[in-house]
Write a protein that binds this DNA or RNA. Structure first.
Lengths: 232, 232
DNA sequence: TACAGTTTTGTTGTCGACAAATAAAATGCA
DNA sequence: TGCATTTTATTTGTCGACAACAAAACTGTA
């Protein structure tokens, strides 16, 4: 009597969160391509559970704008809006500045330890030429700055922007993984020092410069091969 | 044959949205008090539908921070965080400034028509001493400015802030509905003119002043009767 | 062949029911 | 009586099933 149990007997309330986290990662990592349709029963079979928890996860993703749900029709992975990218860059730059300024004001000693930890991991990723690790560690670094700023409103918007950017960065790094991120390591170091020194104007300048670097780099990439963006 | 139909035969996909909108309004209008527990089957009976759509509405409200859901236990109306109000005021002020500046840059002629329409309704509400109408029309006015700024990232954060503030304003206006909002009418007029003139620095100054007025007024109120805030 | 109307197919939105998990009540023991 | 333990009860998380809706496939007619 072979009682195969492919689903490893998950705990009660963990279903939605598991599906949510998994789908979210796959969307942001472009495993699920923008515009592709999502079938609930297919997901239900894949995760070995009913459609109900799948649906709740999709509702959550929908309210965060990661999927668009057409009434009585399939839900769809949200498209990347290449036409209004300037609004994204604008908001991203402002949030870089605001969160870094606030970190200079409100950080505590333990925040610096965390920051340096993330920075070290980022430097390792750059040294190892590991594009995926660069993306995630860079994100963690700036998310930690936002946390140190201690304003949840800014933090949540910033995280959303970083996630939206994560999809762009996936396009970016998969096309050419060059050595430019080396500059970012130094800039990160300077930002940490400015935060530690409570130098708010310097934090503002450094964050703005850092943001401009990233924005211009992405824009250069987009201008370079426009075919790819039209294709999506 | 008496076929009573208390539930008016709603359309198919409208269930969740109806429950979501209704609960959201009741939470923001303090009909559902912060910290109060929400029973799903009770809501299901009240809305005349199954628990499934109620649940999806609650998930959505949860992801927007309006309710907090304890695992395997009741979900709860989110508390008002009186301790960290300064983060709220800070973000609100910045968003006032940013959205108004962007409206000066990117507005179109039809936006001004909409703005003047909201402004007229706000003036009417002030004239009629209708506190609830003041809250909603003021919100609509500033939301329209954000829309005219055409940056969905800022708009969504701003709307969230305005909604969080709506609960505070409910506390505020229900304790003393005075004639102070009269000043706001004039300030709104000045903001409209500055937007129309594309005067970005003036928009920034006016928005900052406007925000400070509101913030200080709420802070005065909170300092005046602290008993009420502790009670909640 | 082109097109309007009809049928079929596939997918979603909703339902009622059951089981797990927690809180409350009841019981037993010192 | 006070406390630990068991039992009950309530509420959630999940499931399988069915009906409604939209798109695709099909049919008949000009």
């Amino acid at each position: 009597m072979l009682e195969t149990e492919p689903v490893p007997e998950r705990r009660r309330g963990s279903g939605v969160k598991m599906v949510y986290d998994q789908l979210r990662d796959e969307i942001l990592d472009l495993v699920l391509l923008p515009g592709s349709l999502i079938d609930e029963v297919q997901l239900a079979e894949r995760f070995g559970m009913s459609r109900t928890p799948i649906r709740e996860a999709l509702v959550r993703l929908s309210s965060e704008g990661l999927v668009e749900t057409l009434p009585n029709r399939s839900t769809m992975v949200a498209n990347i809006d290449f036409l209004n990218l300037h609004t994204f860059f604008d908001a991203l730059t402002l949030m870089y500045r605001v969160t870094t300024r606030l970190a200079a004001q409100h950080h505590r000693p333990e925040d610096l330890v965390i920051l340096r930890d993330h920075q070290r991991r980022y430097a390792d990723a750059v040294g190892a030429q590991d594009a995926l690790a660069m993306i995630s560690t860079n994100r963690a670094f700036h998310a930690a700055i936002a946390e140190a700023g201690r304003n949840p409103y800014y933090t949540s918007l910033f995280l959303r922007l970083l996630d939206d950017g994560r999809r762009l960065l996936r396009l970016y790094y998969q096309s050419f993984s060059d050595q430019l991120p080396r500059e970012y390591v130094d800039e990160h170091e300077a930002i940490i020092s400015a935060i530690e020194a409570h130098d708010i104007p310097l934090c503002d300048r450094l964050a703005a410069k850092h943001a401009d670097q990233i924005v211009h780099q992405i824009q250069r990439f987009l201008a370079r091969d426009q075919r790819q963006q039209i294709q999506l």
